[in-house]
Design a protein around this nucleic acid. Sequence first.
DNA 1: AGCATTTTCATTGCAATGCGATACTATGTT
DNA 2: AACATAGTATCGCATTGCAATGAAAATGCT
Lengths: 267, 267
Amino acid sequence: MATDEATAEAGGDRLAIASVRKAMVVLETVAMHSEPIGLTRIAEATGFGKSAVQRLTHTLGALGYLEKDPSTRRYRLTVRMLDLTYGFLSKDPLITSGMLQLIDARERIGETLNMGRLEGTDFIYTVRMPAHRLSIIGALIGRRQPAFCTSGGRAVLSRMPRMAAEALIDARPLQALTPNTTIDRGRLIELIEQARIEGFSATDQEVMMGELAVSAPITDEYGQPIGAVQCSVSTAAWTFERMRAELAPQVMETARLISRTPPSRRG
Amino acid sequence: MATDEATAEAGGDRLAIASVRKAMVVLETVAMHSEPIGLTRIAEATGFGKSAVQRLTHTLGALGYLEKDPSTRRYRLTVRMLDLTYGFLSKDPLITSGMLQLIDARERIGETLNMGRLEGTDFIYTVRMPAHRLSIIGALIGRRQPAFCTSGGRAVLSRMPRMAAEALIDARPLQALTPNTTIDRGRLIELIEQARIEGFSATDQEVMMGELAVSAPITDEYGQPIGAVQCSVSTAAWTFERMRAELAPQVMETARLISRTPPSRRG
DNA sequence: AGCATTTTCATTGCAATGCGATACTATGTT
DNA sequence: AACATAGTATCGCATTGCAATGAAAATGCT
């Protein structure tokens, strides 16, 4: 019963404490669902037994991470989750120093600025500075998007060794999010090569229609890419070419400022 | 052995899965420390045995929530934490609708705007819109501050039943964060009463010197307080009285807009 | 409204498994 | 180079998580 999940998720490491793994899977399951989710739904989604899920939700509830709507008896995450969020955000030097630069840049540019990094094959946002109300649909910290079709993801890829970048592209099927999404592998590698040369990456409605974006990579003291600054604008106010001409330099400059070695902690 | 912690933390509920509880305590311990933390330090801080912590950190590492610096062998949270963050943020209607209003309001007001809610005796920030680089020290989601001395906390308290508000004040010793912090219980209740009447709460450097803040409560469809909008400004640019006169109305209006019943999900 | 179906809650005993104890290795400090 | 400190590896038994079961409650149907 549980063997299928074990091999699929844990990836062969037998030493992971089973109940902890399950608890985290439950948390993520609750997190992923767009609505509060009930006991049996969790059991189905996770593949764990109903009894186990019962104990797990109870435990996570008692610890304050899950709360159950008294009327629907469905579970959702609690605000306590944000304690862990803060714990992560507050001690990531890239984030704290990046926020400073992003604030300045947004004030100068007047458009939405984001920061993010790679996580697996996704680009995940760590800082968001929305400028207009139009630009905030889902403009939340922690949002994931496929790296291959976002300007931020491509910016990071453009500073990675070619082989690593290609491996990452191949690690996931290239699925189009819009009619504009580049799903041709060769073309994609061309675009990344172009980004490597130009120092920035620009996308034209490849994630969402109406959205243009330009990104520049952030590097650590060894030149390794550790994230990207992204500027996202609307086709209503910008053209692709004008964005490339006017915004790309500013985004690159912002990324360069963040790239200056933060107070690092290396032997 | 583990009995001390069990009674202290779980509060008498015996059904919490031990290892899950320990795992979450480890996560929070790592989150709380300002620097990456080693195995024995975690063991000391949590009171768990070294062997247990070893397994727990290994497990949490294998699951991708903890990563260990290869050189120092200290643990820190990973960006995967943000998946849970997003899971929480994205389905809280207060947060998504609040962001919209906060963006508009920041553009209008031009000063830093935050949103938050009570969690225990703390006011915890859920949305932050810093306006200037001066204002962003620790301007991160998930930050906690004692409710009693923050304008946001007092704004929420001012819409709670008096007894509940007083109980919350008494639940924690009133410790001053600055020379200006109100630690006199009677005076505090006066201030909350004033907020109840005026519809907003203002603080003058009670959390940090140089920082003024004004907040208004957000209520649900039944008038229950569920959070607060806060505007935070610097004494370099504002006086307490001018903030009360010019910013308080705008903050109240913003809170009112957010208070309009969001797409709720009640039977 | 009243019955059928589904979902959640409560309990128990046994086998799986987490953890204490211990020893060993790596690191960095005097 | 030796000592002190911190991390890793191993193992066996007592702890404890969970499958199984059924009661209770809630929902949906006619």
